[in-house]
Design a protein around this nucleic acid. Sequence first.
DNA 1: TCAAATAATGTGCGTGCGCACGCATCATCA
DNA 2: TGATGATGCGTGCGCACGCACATTATTTGA
Lengths: 157, 157
Amino acid sequence: MSDTDVAAWAALLRVHAALVPLIDRELQAACGLPLTWYDVLLELNSAPDRRLNMSDLGDVALVSRTRASRVVDQMVAAGLVTREPNPDDRRSAYATISEAGRARLRAAAPAYLASIRRHFTSRMTPAESATVAAALRKVLADPPGDSDQASAVPPAV
Amino acid sequence: MSDTDVAAWAALLRVHAALVPLIDRELQAACGLPLTWYDVLLELNSAPDRRLNMSDLGDVALVSRTRASRVVDQMVAAGLVTREPNPDDRRSAYATISEAGRARLRAAAPAYLASIRRHFTSRMTPAESATVAAALRKVLADPPGDSDQASAVPPAV
DNA sequence: TCAAATAATGTGCGTGCGCACGCATCATCA
DNA sequence: TGATGATGCGTGCGCACGCACATTATTTGA
C-alpha cells in the first residue's frame, strides 16, 4: 500500500544523489561554475532589480541563509556579484548580480541545459517531465510549517 | 522550449533542499536515526544475507563508498551493524545488519513513512506519484557512464 | 521618548562529505 | 612461480554546510 508512496520519494533521493555531483562536475568543467553559484546567479538575475538580501537569497536559492552570506563573499571576490548596503534597512545587504555575472550566466546556460537534458529529461517523455514538474511544484507550494514537534509524530522512545 | 525541460529538474532540486533536512530532523527526533543511517539499514536489510561490502553499499545507498566505511564504523559502535571479514576476499569487509538494527528499522519505518506522506506524497495525486516514481526510475536505470569529458560539452573557455 | 522585543546579518565551530593517496590483497599471464 | 596490473578498503585532508551566538539596526508598546 504505502510501498508506492515511498517509491517516488526513494527515486527522488537516488536521482539527486546520482545526478547532482555529475552535473555539478560537468558544469564546473565546462564553465568553471559550481552548481551552487549557477543557482545563485540564476535567482539574482530573475529577482527584482537583479538583487536579493541574504535572507531572501537563502529562502529562494539552494543555499541556506548562513551559507549565502559566505557564498556571496566568494562570488564578490570572483567579480560575479556585488555587495551593496540597503539604505532603507542598514542591517541588510543586497547581493546584486554584476554584468560579468550575467555574462557568465548566459555563457554557462547552454552547458547546464545540455547536462540536464542528457542525464535527466531525455530519459523520460515530455508528458512525464511535465507531470514531474507539476507534481513537485505542488509539493513546494504548500506551507511546510506544520512540521514542528507539536503536530509531528510523537517521539516513539 | 527548453524551459519546460529545466522546470522538472529545478523543482527536484528545490524539493530535495526543502524536504531532506526536514524529514531528517523529524526522523531523528522520532527515533534517533539520521536519514543516512536509515537508508543504510534499509539497503542492508534487503540485501542478500542482509549484508553488503563497502563498495556495493556505496553504490546502492545514499552514501559514497568512502563515507560508507565511516558510517558503518559509527553504526557498529551503535550496535546496529556488524563488520565481518569476507573469507573469500580478504580485502573486503561485510557490513551486516544486526538484530538490533532490524528492530530499529522496523521501529523507525512508521515515522519515516508518515513524514514522507505528510510532506511529499500527500501533496500530489496517486497518479502523479506513480508517474514521478516511474519517470525517476527510468532516469536511474540508464547507464550514466557516457558523461566523461569525451562526449561531454567541449570546454567553452 | 525610550526600553524591550524582533529582525537581518556575519562568524566560530563542529560535522558531513568526497577526493587523493597508500596499503593489502587478488587476478592474470608468461 | 613470480611479476605486474587491478581491486577493495581505510584515512588524511580540505571544503561545504548549518547551528548557535553576538552584533547592529529596526519596530513596537507603554
